[in-house]
Nucleic acid binder design. Structure first.
Length: 303
DNA sequence: TGCCAGGCGGGGT
DNA sequence: ACCCCGCATGGC
């Protein structure tokens, strides 16, 4: 059936000052975002819309409001940016990227993302995720095109050996444990505390992974995912010991603690800690063009 | 070529 | 409340 003009399935999003290029480009893959537009996945991980960076959208399911929510357009980050403007780590981010918003993913995939960041570099972790999607090759047809989906918990459980092929190493057992827990309904996705607590019940999921997953899927910013990278940068910038970094972080960022961690990875292009400390000392606290993938340019490299 | 990296758990003291 | 080690993998 043909869509008529003025149909609610197409239109223009209310961006409320957000920069959709930044929102879609951040931590994305080339098969979902091409620089001009990208797919937005909601709830069960199904594609809900295609959104262009100028704000136009084509809705596949759900509502415009749900798409805006997923893209972070309905969230007021003015309090976060006010703090960031006078922060020794994030003032450059606040100045250069005021239109950035956090695009969320599903609780399941957010947990997998967290596991793939454990004890590894940013790039290696995202390569694992890229290979997981390509190896499981789950797709759906939308608007006449085949679109990659993230593997589901049951996909993982029916072919667990692909986890190793994707290079996840010893994290494979943790991802498999997560898949079982999600499939069996043991993970409470209804609230921040419950989500983190039930995730912690899976062997191999610690506080960093649980908190990161909660930030990336439910916008739970109250508990910052502190890893060694953030701890050392915070220690240097705030003049505290690494062991005291979390306390200081929470004191400064309050309800925005988790969001500030994500922003910092973007600001410093997720470069390894040694280089990140050098950039901090030189005051290069905003994304710079590089010949390697960064959180903002990942999509150009992993197509 | 050996290191080592946005953790974690299990074992110590 | 600390400290220490091993762990799969791939990049430098």
């Amino acid at each position: 059936m043909a869509m008529s003009l003025g149909d609610a399935a197409a239109g223009v999003l209310d961006t409320r000052g957000a920069d959709l290029y930044l929102v879609l480009a951040t931590y994305n893959f080339g098969f979902w975002f091409n620089g001009k537009g990208g797919y937005v996945f909601t709830q069960g991980g199904e594609p809900a819309a295609y959104v262009w960076v100028d704000g136009r959208y084509q809705l596949y399911r759900g509502s415009r409001e749900l798409v805006e929510e997923t893209l972070g357009l309905r969230e007021d980050l003015s309090g976060f940016y006010r703090l960031a403007r006078s922060d020794p780590l994030l003032h450059g981010f606040a100045e250069k990227l005021p239109g950035w918003r956090l695009r969320t993913t599903t609780p399941w995939w957010a947990a997998v993302i967290g596991v793939c960041q454990q004890n590894t570099g940013f790039l290696q972790g995202w390569r694992m995720l890229y290979r997981l999607i390509k190896l499981y090759a789950r797709t759906t047809r939308v608007d006449g095109k085949q679109v990659y989906l993230v593997p589901s918990p049951s996909d993982v459980l029916s072919r667990p050996y692909l986890l190793r092929e994707a290079g996840t190493g010893y994290r494979a057992a943790t991802i498999q444990g997560l898949a079982r827990a999600f499939r069996d309904g043991e993970i409470d996705t209804g609230g921040c505390k419950g989500f983190r607590e039930t995730l912690l019940g899976v062997k191999g999921v610690g506080s960093y992974t649980a908190r990161l997953a909660a930030v990336l899927s439910l916008r739970c910013y109250d508990e910052p995912p502190m890893d060694n990278w953030v701890r050392r940068l915070a220690a240097e910038a705030y003049g505290v010991e690494p062991r005291e970094a979390e306390e200081e972080w929470r004191r400064r960022w309050g309800r925005w603690s988790g969001l500030a961690v994500i922003a910092l990875t973007i600001a410093l292009d997720a470069v390894p800690i040694r280089k990140a400390l050098t950039r901090l000392r030189r005051g290069i606290l905003y994304p710079v063009p590089m010949d390697k993938p960064t959180p903002l340019t990942l999509w150009r490299y992993m197509v």
